[in-house]
Write a protein that binds this DNA or RNA. Structure first.
Length: 843
RNA sequence: GCCCCAGUAGCCCAAUUGGCAGAGGCAGCGGACUUAAAAUCCGCAAAGUCAGGGUUCGAGUCCCUGCUGGGGCACCA
């Protein structure tokens, strides 16, 4: 489809370069310009310090098939920012690469009896071609793929540095296990108790796994969000805050009395309510924690074991259901309340989680609903220690958690809840049985995966020496090439274990026979530092060039979907902080600003294969052209809002583009003409548009910029067609058309380039530079002052923009309409906001 | 249950951060061009801002309560 302009009307000068005389043809433009841009290296940063640098980054894609509408939206947004900053004169780094390790490639390889790299790199080539067609202003010379050995060599190098700092370690722990993908999952990859990838309910499995100690950075990850405030979407910060889950309270140590041959034992609990310590009537440990086994008396042992079996059989989804009846078993032991010496029965239950806090709690049923439910189920006592005015929880069955005054609490009696919390902590500290403690919900990052297509963990296991890191000069540990097809099928252990030749090596330490670690890294490890690699992707002496890294980092504008609000963004922040602490990087936050583009929907729903409501990007590009699709993405709504493809009109965008392009057909003045004699009204519109567009772009209001651009095009058209003026020969028309070309180049690079060319300028419009607006042209000769009486508009006055308040007040009071509205009433106040408004308040 | 975001013409969205509710687009209607249609061009109409209360000379904008929709966390001690 091409959009044809109306029949030519005359002005023919300046159209010599038109590909096909007078016809807007996106196909011709798409065929013509990519080569020109490539030859001119328009989008390769100078990287020489001659200009201020800016780093603009889109979250790099995973190579699953060809690009889709979601990519088109995200990359359209990021490209607006990159192209705008380039026009503003910055040296812009806007790279592209692929997050190319991951399960889909492996599954495809099993199905096709191939190596995952085949599927991966074929898809990457397809996507790369599509990106080029889509005219992303990327520096292709910096292209990288995380599955290239040249890349993952440095992922392994970084892993080793983490290991040396004690930030990468192995431990036995019950982990999330996906029974379909047959691999472990990080907490972040479990959504509502199910695998985020395939939706299979997750089970627990006890395994020895590699972890990154992200919890050591919990405080900083939380505190440093203050730097991001205002530059990151509030909801992303809220999600991270939630996820980190900082909780202030106290650790309290309880002595568990000796029983028979079981010796006395001290157990610590975490509580946010140390003020309610006198209300503790029992004690609970997580049934699945080892602690339960340590405590249980021989008499209760069988009962506990039976209960643990039952708990294990529950799926995560069942276990997390809040409607479940409370269950548990008595352990036969008693804990001593450190404040009043009271004996509390110790129970084991599954409502206490082994991996939160200390896996044990003091139960205060009067003031905690879960404890109350448990107490009622097992006939345990309830004692209120906080008078809130509500009914006694023992009677009502509703725990009271609000404000109140302490009672039945010895020295704490009479204090408010807010006073009692620190007071209780102070008492505990004096007794030496507790102290203030800040607990986090965040768990360490489980990074090992029992799958093939990922970065091998560069560790060798030696019977003599234990864990031995592969020496730096032997990196990368590359994946074997000979495993393919069925050999990659998930078995619950890594497929790498079957590659005997690969696994069996000499210990780098003692030379004896040893084995490689056969797990691979979570792909989120790969993507936690790729933005650093882009600064110097071909550097061979380290993960990045130390001479360059601080010139570009941090990323000034990061663009991507909100689905990565926690996972990728939290991990990348963690990695950045560690690399910073290693002294390799000045920045300690990777992304100064974040833009979450919305989703592309169709008919109110996310596009999906199962719904069959997908819109094919390729078809849209064929039908409307790249520029129209890009413009539609940007114009439809604010960047962070969803775009419903059923609600928008790529045809409308195409119409506008043809309209803008046709301005070039009608401009008949020569390039370089003096604009000063041009139509004043149009010049004002042009300069106002330039000024407003810059402000709007600085605030990511791309959709509004497009609207302003449409106004400018309309105004220019009017001037050309006006019978009274000079039409296409008016220098103001050229000035306007040139501004249109430059601003349009952010959204519709082909049309803008072609327009620029029609206007007689050499390529590329991307280098034209942002037009400088003339403030004197923005000053209007008169402005409309609104005159209100009691807030209602009663008159409008044309006044000079610099009118004095007094003069405006006089004019307003003299207005007939005002006098009529006042209807003889006196005047109480007159508010004057010269030159725009007068509000007269009658008595 | 706790937390975050958003409700403005039929639809997608603007509104200089407290100062005339409307910039732009889609859809609609009328007209020009056409043998006709498409395309193109010109023009028109359309809401008082989810509801209620408050602050103010003045509220779409600030505050409170509620409703609706979207999202996050959740047996987290």
């Amino acid at each position: 489809m091409s959009v044809h302009p109306e029949t030519e009307t005359g002005a023919q000068a300046g159209t010599a370069n038109t590909p096909e005389e007078g016809v807007y043809s996106f196909a011709a433009m798409e065929a013509k310009w990519p080569q020109v841009w490539e030859d001119l290296k328009v989008f390769t940063p100078l990287d020489d310090g001659s200009r201020e640098r800016r780093y603009v980054l889109d979250m790099f894609p995973y190579p699953s098939g060809d690009l889709h509408m979601g990519h088109a939206e995200a990359f359209a947004m990021g490209d607006v920012v990159a192209r705008y900053l380039r026009q503003k004169g910055y040296d812009v780094l806007h790279p592209i690469g692929w997050d190319s390790f991951g399960l889909p490639a492996e599954n495809a390889a099993i199905k096709r009896n191939a190596h995952p790299s085949e599927w991966t790199y074929t898809n990457i080539d397809t996507q790369a071609a599509s990106f080029k067609r889509y005219a992303i202003s990327a520096d292709w010379s910096r292209r990288l793929h995380t599955s290239d050995p040249e890349y993952y060599r440095w992922t392994q190098w970084l892993f080793k540095r983490f290991y040396e700092r004690g930030l990468a370690y192995r431990k036995d722990s019950p982990v999330n296990w996906c029974p379909k993908d047959l691999t472990v999952l990080a907490n972040e990859q479990v959504v509502n108790g199910a695998c985020e990838r395939c939706g299979t309910p997750v089970t627990k499995k006890s395994l020895n796994q590699w972890y990154f100690k992200i919890t050591e950075y919990a405080d900083r990850l939380l505190d440093d969000m203050s730097e991001l405030q205002g530059h990151w979407p509030e909801r992303v910060l809220a999600m991270q805050r939630n996820w980190i889950g900082r909780s202030e309270g106290a650790h309290v140590r309880f002595v568990i009395e000796a029983a028979g041959r079981r010796p006395e034992k001290e157990v610590t609990v975490f509580t946010t309510r140390p003020d309610t310590l006198y209300g503790a009537t029992f004690f609970v440990v997580a049934a699945d924690a080892h602690l339960a086994l340590d405590l249980v008396t021989p008499e209760q042992h069988d009962e506990l074991m039976a209960y643990r079996e039952k708990v294990k059989a529950l799926s995560e989804i069942e276990r997390q259901s809040t409607e479940r009846e409370k269950t548990g078993v008595f352990t036969g032991r008693y804990a001593i309340n450190p404040l009043n010496g009271e004996k509390l029965p110790v129970w084991a239950a599954d409502y206490v989680l082994a991996d939160y806090g200390t896996g044990a709690i003091m139960a205060v049923p009067a003031h905690d609903q879960r404890d109350l439910d448990f107490a009622k189920a097992f006939g345990l006592p309830v004692r209120a220690v906080l008078e809130t005015g509500a009914e006694d929880p023992a009677e009502s069955g509703v725990a009271t958690s609000g404000e109140g005054t302490l009672k039945n609490s010895g020295e704490l009696d009479g204090l408010s809840k807010a006073e009692a919390i620190p007071a209780a902590i102070e008492i505990l500290e004096k007794l030496g049985t507790g102290e203030k403690f800040v607990n986090f919900r965040l768990r360490d990052w489980l990074l090992s995966r029992q799958r093939f297509w990922g970065t091998p963990i560069p560790i060798i296991h030696c019977a003599e020496c234990g864990e031995v890191p592969v020496p730096d000069d032997q990196l990368p540990v590359t994946l074997p090439q000979d495993l393919r097809g069925e050999a990659l099928a998930p078995k619950g252990t890594s497929p790498l274990a079957a590659a005997a030749e690969w696994v069996n090596v000499e210990c780098p330490n003692c030379g004896r026979a040893a084995q490689r670690d056969t797990d691979t890294m979570d792909t989120f490890v790969d993507s936690s530092w790729y933005f650093l690699r882009f600064v110097s992707p071909h550097y061979t002496d380290g993960p990045f060039d130390p001479a360059k890294i601080n010139e570009w980092m941090p990323v000034g504008q990061y663009v991507g979907g909100v689905e990565h609000a926690i996972l990728h963004l939290l991990y990348a922040r963690f990695f950045t902080k560690v690399v910073h602490d290693m002294g390799l990087l000045d920045a300690d936050e990777p992304f100064s600003a974040l833009l979450n583009q919305g989703q592309v929907l169709n008919g109110g729903k996310a596009m999906s294969k199962s719904l069959g409501n997908g819109v094919d990007l390729g078809e849209q590009l064929d039908k409307f052209g790249v520029d129209a699709v890009r413009l539609t993405m940007v114009f439809a709504s604010p960047p962070e809002d969803d775009v419903d493809w059923a609600d928008v009109s790529p045809a409308g965008s195409a119409k506008f583009l043809a309209r803008a392009w046709r301005l070039g057909q009608d401009v008949s003045s020569a390039p370089g003409v003096d604009f000063s004699g041009g139509d004043r009204a149009l010049r004002t519109v042009t300069h106002r548009t330039i000024a407003e567009a810059a402000v709007l772009l600085d605030n990511n209001k791309f959709n509004v910029v497009v609207a302003k651009l449409m106004e400018l095009v309309n105004a220019t058209r009017k001037t050309i067609d006006s019978a009274s003026g000079a039409g296409g020969a008016d220098p103001a028309v050229r000035e306007a058309a040139e501004a249109v070309a430059v601003i349009l180049s952010l959204f519709a690079p082909y049309t803008a380039e072609d327009l620029w060319n029609q206007l007689g300028h050499p390529a590329s419009v991307a280098n034209a530079g942002w037009p400088v607006h003339d403030d004197s042209l923005l000053v209007q000769e008169t402005v409309t002052a609104v005159v209100q009486v009691q807030g209602k508009v009663r008159d409008r006055l044309e006044v000079a923009p610099d009118i004095a308040e007094d003069a405006l007040r006089e004019l307003a009071l003299a207005s007939d309409n005002v006098q009529r509205a006042l209807d003889g009433r006196g005047i109480r106040t007159v508010i004057v906001r010269a030159p725009k408004l007068v509000n007269i308040v009658p008595a």
